[in-house]
Design a protein around this nucleic acid. Sequence first.
DNA 1: GCAACGAATCGAAGCGCTTCGATCGTGATT
DNA 2: AATCACGATCGAAGCGCTTCGATTCGTTGC
Lengths: 340, 340
Amino acid sequence: MVTIVDVAKHAGVAPSTVSYVLTGKRPVSADTRVRVRESIQLLGYRPHAGLSARARTNVLALVLPLREGVHLPVAMRFVTSVVTSARGHDMDVLLVTADQGAAGLRALAESGRVDGFLVMDVELDDERVPVLRQLGLPSVLLGHPAAVKGLTCIDLDFEAAGARCVDHLADLGHRNIGFLGAPSVVYERNTGFAQRTLAGFSAAAMRRGVTSTAVPGEHGHDWVLAVVASLLRELPRMSALVVQNEAVLGQVVDCLRAEGRRVPDDVAVVAICPDELAERLRLTSVQLPVEVLGRWAVDLLMAKLKGHQPPALTLLPPKLASRTGSKSPEPRLRVTNGVG
Amino acid sequence: MVTIVDVAKHAGVAPSTVSYVLTGKRPVSADTRVRVRESIQLLGYRPHAGLSARARTNVLALVLPLREGVHLPVAMRFVTSVVTSARGHDMDVLLVTADQGAAGLRALAESGRVDGFLVMDVELDDERVPVLRQLGLPSVLLGHPAAVKGLTCIDLDFEAAGARCVDHLADLGHRNIGFLGAPSVVYERNTGFAQRTLAGFSAAAMRRGVTSTAVPGEHGHDWVLAVVASLLRELPRMSALVVQNEAVLGQVVDCLRAEGRRVPDDVAVVAICPDELAERLRLTSVQLPVEVLGRWAVDLLMAKLKGHQPPALTLLPPKLASRTGSKSPEPRLRVTNGVG
DNA sequence: GCAACGAATCGAAGCGCTTCGATCGTGATT
DNA sequence: AATCACGATCGAAGCGCTTCGATTCGTTGC
């Protein structure tokens, strides 16, 4: 390993002089500066990251707490999208999955190992937000807390998404609509997307004069059975169900059928999930545009790195894809090409 | 800022003892350990990683060149597996997707940003291998080059996998077997898994006296059509086809059907791919145990970080899952729970 | 011609942490 | 009882880098 001392020796100066050439914290004569630069080049010296490191690392941190209730396949779609986008900007991605919370963020920022942060799974009152605000590094949130001032956030408009489901179903004549959401831990954590969807759903139900019930959706087959049963008990005339829970979506449909309800004839199911999943199960859905969100988030971060100041909040309007009428033939494998 | 010295003073021990409690590199009596832990807790001490050159960064680099022919969904399954395993060892993952080759590896190692390397998409004569050998940092290859001495590699035994497909089909009486492989760029790069599978396939075909033809499988619907047509032309009596190409697998089956061949009645298709995909298409397959490989790779790397010297090459025996006989009902969503 | 000045550079003392040889108690072995 | 062995702990020497007071040395002002 080439150290600053090696460079100093080679250039015939003191290590501190090399340091000053690197940091520019004290004036160095043009002559010496050139000589030191040459030695650095020649020896292939790279300052040890974390100590000097005011230089760009070309690494962005994707902070993704892998905690209970996070649906891994969907999370990984985000990762894929972020990684491929980052690649287009010549950036690598540090996947920070250990949840050390705000302290972890600060430590990472101070260690100088990354150029910026992409933060996922944001809670309404997230403890990491104040830290992000005062941090020297730029950051973008995938999802948004209650107060977004001074931040840069991008998210699907989940409130509108929840409302959109109700409106769609109410337009079709449904008067009793259930809502099966994320696992309860997600609500207990006050995770933004879950709370907002529910709020949008509830408000729209009230506005449209629709009777509704909402329940969280725990994982595990027995739980799903119980949850579906309780929905049917609480809302006997339930003719439509909105599901925001990728992990149990398929099981929910199965359970409804096991209870003797035809889907979608007896119970119309609308999912809020990535398109592919809804496509496979042939369910009407509000699309969760994972790829767009991931790419956009990276673009926003790169813009901030270049010194721009993008808007505090970018909300994508929800899009509903109706899949009731046309019973397509056997679902087909969606083919994704490798990256060229 | 709370330093290790503060903790040591508070606990009434030497700083080195605190360090040993933290790293576990030397035994510390249970009594002392508890006391030190309490002081750490009480003072809110957070070790400042990255200051000392020898400090662990708790980051492992997952080197995954995102180049043509790499199938992203499968690659991301590896990433998922690696990330969740790494999480269990309190490690984060730096996803290095930029293909700067050997130079990039060296730069990364010298920058001191990672503790070790996990290298994917390994070629038979990979330029990165000599660098990995002389690097100070431990590394594990997912896949293996021609010469593995001094390395640590883990891989599915693709040669056996190729042979296994032939044996299975030959046992069923097939005498004309096609092989549809990865895109041709993958072979041109001399990527290990592709070359080995083909070698195993060919050798087994010869051994069993089976007529065979092998073609690479480019992406894009028109290409697939052309490739399938050419296979049927070259091997008119082809009654079985081995496919090692996740990206076009579904299309291949579609094209065969479009050509009037029933699958599996006229043409038995055996895939080499992750189980889930084969399950969805209801195809017999040799399983590509992505999750196991990823987890095992991380375990190997952690073992090396602890100073152990695992075997140079670990090969997983291929497992064939037969899915012909039982036509299961409508494919069901495979549910994966979030991480708890 | 000599002191004062300031830019350029040096040397050494840290930074917080790891690591290694040394030391200090034990209990077990002769 | 003296010795040994060994686990637990300490002290000090680094690690690569920054930082700051000190030291040059060529200018300038008088």
